[in-house]
Nucleic acid binder design. Structure first.
Lengths: 189, 189, 189, 189
DNA sequence: AATGAATGAGTCTTCATTCAT
DNA sequence: GATGAATGAAGACTCATTCAT
């Protein structure tokens, strides 16, 4: 019937199921049934189960990798760092299902032949918003800023309120943490 | 040789492997091999694979559940809330492998017949440190405070520095976020 | 590019792979990849996998079948029999890859819908160089003469020395055995 | 029901089927059905399909390997070499199904992680009955002597006659070839 | 308190084959 | 003369689980 887009449909259905049930728990039989094709059809489009997920990763982590690349070439100013957080939040939101999948399946995915892991990307990003001479306290603030953006994803789903308002609030808290790390106005100052 | 403690040893080895490789990916065969017993021996101590992990959960999430119970009965003051964060951090640290496991296997564990999930406990806790009339911004700060403690776990492993110093810095940032949410001294104030 | 000869190219590649890896172990995918065409293309030229190998057989066992036919019509003299051995050796050499394939895949090929099997052809040939009244000992010599020619194939690959010289030596030993069977000069005679 | 001997029964049935149909063509399902157990039961006794056959090999090629070891330590006399042929024939006969399997599945078995292959063992043995200064002709005679013993196996099945008589005749022809190679009485001498 | 032997259901994967284009 | 897309059947293998001993 529909042709040409099967590869894409496989990835969509697969990511949905992976995110919902976990990678290991989702069988190719299940994916095939959802698509109303045979398991063998999946193998026409992807060499292995791992390949399916790697394909998804490559498509969807590109924005974050591009962000990292971009950030590496920028001057190390507060403005740039704020921009990093802004862009990171955008990436998280636009690749939400993948993000959720990565977050909730870290163990299962760790061994996959995927370039950078979730953790490694986070480390990289948190490095890019710090100065080498930061105190431990300020380093924590930077990592916390990133985790706040992640918390935002969680927040979106589980706390009531206007979506856009929540997004902005999350970003504000993250930016606050960043500026505090950068010697910004702090309590009592 | 040493007997009687086999049940405990099974749980220890199992949690180690679950945390490392994921729940689904870890087979009973593997656990048995690590313990140098047969698979059948595991069934003498636990009725199912799920039972093993449920046992671990019950042993190790008790502190957090007790914290929740305690918190529910306290007056809703800032001091109590600070104490909640402090105690939560302690729980996280003392049940580190379980925490890491829960964090990295959320998807796999979701379907298990376990009382409260990781997420639910977090929601509960974050509710306990908020006021009903909080703005979205302040709610984000509270959730962020909790995520900061989680970030701390990540921080412990992946950032250099003295362990105790890091722990304290993490707590400080979390407490900061909390007091800001509570109208504490903010930028420019 | 070059077309028209595709059928032949398929057979060549297939025989090569069959000889190297075995018939069952060689998949059509593999053959297609070696030829840089799709599997479906193979089906344009051959109806089934079995068909490919049957085609090869028919092309390459013809010489032996013709030899058998020829031999059946000759007078049953020692000279004719010597000629049979000579011609058989030639056939073996000129269809070397097929011979090797047949030799090493007897089990796999047994069930194929192929006229005479390797074994049957050998039995036939050995019958043609014996007399009905031969003693068991002389029958063994005749079968041994044929096996010696086969051994020669093995010899070619695995023992050093000039190719032509080896071929002649092999033939000489085979002829010797034949003439001994035919009451030729024997030890002490 | 019957216990303890299952491992052995698996090997017996497997070798039978492997010899009859070929290694690749014989599925574990088939083996299991013949034994009236499940496929999984096979995996309790052997780690892989390859393992089943390797087990068989090790049990059954031992005699030939021991012969090779023994031969290496003997003085290089004609008598010893005759003894080698005699013992080799015995080995072939006593491990007949395995021999037939090896002979007819060389291609399939080549890639298996088995010590020496059929071919290598033959080369080794043929080396042990030759002198370094042999002419090509004499080398051929030695290899031919070995092939004659193999031919004997074929002879046993496919030529009528008393079994013991055939065996002796085969050995006699092989010994003849050996003694001719060793400058024994030849035609016209 | 633990083992040896086995099972049933399921996994991922590969294969030969088909057919509309 | 060949491809792209797909299928049904089967393959090897693994898993959680059971039970008699």
């Amino acid at each position: 019937m529909a042709r040409g887009n099967t590869r894409q449909r496989i990835q969509d259905v697969a990511l949905g199921l992976f995110a919902e049930q976990g990678y290991e728990k989702t069988s190719l039989r299940e994916i095939a049934e959802h698509l109303d094709v045979t398991k063998a059809a999946l193998y026409y489009h992807f060499k292995t189960k791992e390949d399916i997920i790697i394909g998804i990763f490559q498509d969807l982590t590109r924005p974050v990798d591009e962000l990292i690349d971009w950030a590496r070439e920028q001057p190390r100013t507060l403005e740039v760092r704020e921009e990093i957080l802004r862009r990171y939040q955008e990436s998280l939101i636009s690749a939400y299902p993948l993000f959720r999948f990565m977050q909730e399946n870290q163990a299962a995915v760790r061994e996959l032949s995927i370039g950078l892991t979730f953790k490694e990307r986070m480390l990289e990003l948190s490095g890019l918003i710090q100065e080498p001479d930061f105190t431990v306290l300020d380093r924590v603030r930077c990592v916390s800023a990133i985790f706040t953006l992640h918390a935002g994803m969680f927040f979106m789903d589980n706390v009531e309120g206007d979506s856009e308002e929540k997004r902005e609030a999350v970003l504000e808290v993250a930016l606050d943490l960043l500026s505090q790390a950068h010697g910004g106005p702090v309590a009592g100052a």
